[in-house]
């Protein structure tokens, strides 16, 4: 891993077109970053991608018994929805 030391308002440049600037460093260790990049770059918090990857794997595991059981709480769902019949885990 490349390690660089930067201060507030200092930046790094990636590949000549992505500029990451340190905006604020909080006492709690939180760092605010500003990112300037062309629109076609998709920028996500790493933990979001890891969570989606985990959910994809759970979807696979549940389709191929034995199912993985999780108990993570979910956020409030969008409104609405009709009655839906789901297949069972054995594929019927």
């Amino acid at each position: 891993m490349l390690v660089l030391t930067r201060r507030i308002d200092e930046s790094i440049v990636i590949n000549g077109e992505i500029v990451v600037t340190v905006l604020e460093v909080g006492r709690n260790g939180q760092v605010r970053l500003g990112i300037e990049a062309p629109r076609h770059y998709q920028i996500y918090r790493h933990e979001l991608l890891l969570e989606i990857q985990r959910e994809n794997r759970d979807a696979l595991s549940s389709a191929a018994p034995p199912a993985v059981t999780t108990s993570a709480p979910g956020p409030a769902p969008p409104a609405g929805g009709a009655a839906t019949t789901l297949p069972t885990a054995d594929g019927s």
């Binding site: 969008p78 929805g81 009709a82 009655a83």
Partner: peptide, 11 residues
Amino acid sequence: PIRFFLRDIKV
């Protein structure tokens, strides 16, 4: 939601 529970749509 990443986890939208299907019980909420009357599965």
